[in-house]
Amino acid sequence: MSVDFGLMWSVFENGKGFGPGDAVSGLAESGFGALARHDGGVHCVHHDSLWCGGDLWWTVFAPAADEGRGSWSERRRVGLAPVVSPVSLASYRDTLYLAYLTRRSTDDFPVLMLAALRPDGSWESREFSHAAKGQPVLTVHEGLLHLAFHGFDPAAELGEGAREIYSPRLSDEFVLTAYQYDNTDVMYHLTFDGTSWSDAVALPVVGRFDFDLAFHRGQLHRVFRRYDDESRDAAAIMHTVLEGGTWSEPVVLGHATGHGWPVMAVHDDMLYVAWATGGWSGPEEDAEDYDDPSAWRPPAYDASIRLGVLESAGWREVDAVSVEAWTGRPRTPTPALISCTESAGGPSRLLLVYPAQADPR
């Protein structure tokens, strides 16, 4: 079964919900996008497949100057292959930053990369850390650029399978450190002031990968996916807040199947979260029948994107976007969410970008 996927976008308005979905032009197959407001537009960097590999592509949403909805530029290749992780974007002090993981044939473990957009439209990339294990997240808060990522715990007891690798440890000096790939996860958090990076602080970990972070009213919020069972057929979407150096007890926001994870955005001083449902379930990735379409089971319920908002009484679901085409491929796409202004001087809108089946016409 072969299905081409492209990016769709929709706008959420309070009291009206999501508007009709439109295709982002020129995208034959794409997935796992990241959004950031930069230089008057919304920049989108995305993978060239739903399987989160290969190269990255880049397009920009230009807000309309009148009552129109705006338009997307033709996509350009970023040229940072191979990229093997979800990516993150943030605009800080007139520079657009991109964080991603790469894994070359000579690497035992993923390498965390940090790229910056040059004035000429090219990307300058450098190795940032060899201690990374999973998804990076960039965000801006109180005049600082924040970076968090899953990494190895050097203090964990080493066992069979431990390897020695060199880690830059946030400096130019490489320090020999022993790590084990399956050690206890650590979420590293550090900040950039425009000149230098702070030392990394190991935040307590709740869950594993597939997370997003957002600052809202002075607190650091985290949403993540936690598997409901060992088979990974279903997952709970969780929310927690960092309070006094520890995470609050996670609260279940909803449930999903497949591999998609939740994302957050602050809009009109409210915290929103979006996640996808309706992914297929099937064999583990190393199983012999993993690529056999007959081994996969279709969604147990309709494929959709759920949108929730945090209020004083807790989380409330406010709308959903139906995406029936997800039943045509065994993967749950991950949406991207950002607050932006569609027209000059106009009200802000909540922009949703998500992978869906490409128009066959």
Rank of each mutant, 00 (worst) to 15 (best):
A34Y: 02
R104W: 05
R208Y: 05
Y179K: 08
A336N: 01
Q135S: 11
D172Q: 12
W280S: 05
A235V: 08
V266S: 13
T177N: 01
A287E: 07
S167V: 14
P250V: 10
S339F: 04
M1N: 07
P20D: 13
H43Y: 14
F152K: 01
V318W: 07
T327D: 08
T341A: 09
H141M: 07
V137A: 04
S171E: 06
V241R: 12
W58T: 01
A64G: 11
A81P: 05
T240G: 04
F109L: 15
D199F: 07
A34M: 03
R222G: 03
P283C: 09
V323Q: 13
V42W: 05
L114I: 15
R225S: 13
D39E: 15
A274T: 07
A202G: 02
E160Q: 11
Y166F: 15
Y92M: 01
L98T: 00
G161N: 12
H46M: 14
F61P: 11
D94W: 03
G53H: 04
F128M: 10
G53I: 00
W72H: 05
S122P: 05
V87Q: 11
G314F: 06
R104L: 08
R118T: 06
D291P: 01
S167G: 00
P293K: 05
D228V: 05
R226S: 15
S248E: 10
Q180F: 01
R93I: 01
F215V: 04
A200I: 00
A235D: 05
Q357W: 10
W315N: 08
E173G: 03
A81G: 15
R37Q: 11
P299R: 10
T139W: 06
I305N: 13
R226D: 09
P283H: 09
